[in-house]
Design a protein around this nucleic acid. Structure first.
Lengths: 141, 141
DNA sequence: CTTCCTGCAAAGGATTTGCAACGGC
DNA sequence: GCCGTTGCAAATCCTTTGCAGGAAG
């Protein structure tokens, strides 16, 4: 966790960006709070410890983290963009349309099939998103 | 094409909704213009033939078509929602991040794998979206 | 005639930006 | 000091809504 932030700060420096106290605070909260947060979620979490930090800064910090590849934005169709940390292997998402919970899964076979499709269409894949929307176990009661 | 509109109008009546001239005009343009249009695209296309029709009506018509299942909204990550007609079988999308073109493909094998994953997590899938982002053949030049 | 639909303008919500002050390096 | 960063408020973008008039059933 401390190591992660050091890595990010190294990258920041290498990009000519600066390592400010504010930025560090936002990153600390981001990397230690739950895996899928909206900007609003993160802002409120940041506020608890650092009320002086503004909404725009949270946006700007997430944008920088996304550029550096440390955050990934998800569109789960509920109107607000969610972000997750980008340290685990690639995975896809099960989005519960009832409670909003997001589960992750990894299915190498699906990835392989995607590559095959891409080749068929002479398409070079940079990234992909696979979201399964439905009802999670808890909400099926 | 004329048949499609008749089907929609039948559904509209059954839902207690009305078949107005304006609605028919928007639908005609929607069902005959390209497969993936943003609201803006459709609005401009509609404007060409029917300058009196407003932006809000285009939104409202698309919303109705979506409710009835005749339109599907796509989020391709470029800020604006795109819509496509919902008459073909289910398919996924190859989105070119260079020119914005959207290609469709259908891979039953992927669908089958998704079902398997869902079962593993005791998740009931209602729908899914799979987008492969990258560079299309034309843009690779 | 009752209910739904329309166009316009205004409102909303999410995200971005301009700017003067501030803080790394 | 120079240049990136911050907080605030204002601006912007996309989408929805309120309303008074108009059209469909």
């Amino acid at each position: 966790l401390e190591g992660i932030i050091e890595r990010v700060e190294k990258d920041l420096r290498e990009c000519g960006k600066k390592v400010s106290k504010t930025r560090r605070k936002v990153m600390e909260v981001f990397f230690s709070c739950g895996r899928h947060v909206s900007v609003e979620d993160l802002y409120m979490e940041v506020k608890k410890k650092h009320p002086e930090i503004g909404y725009a800064t949270v946006y700007r910090t997430l944008k920088v983290l996304e550029e550096l590849g440390y955050a990934v934005s998800l569109d789960v169709g509920d109107g607000s963009t969610k972000f997750e940390t980008a340290f685990s292997q690639h995975h896809d998402h099960l989005v519960c349309t009832s409670c909003g919970t997001i589960l992750e899964f990894h299915e190498p076979e699906i990835e392989r099939l995607q590559e095959r499709v891409a080749r068929k269409y002479h398409f070079i894949v940079e990234s992909h998103t696979l979201h399964l929307f439905g009802t999670c176990e808890k909400c099926q009661g």
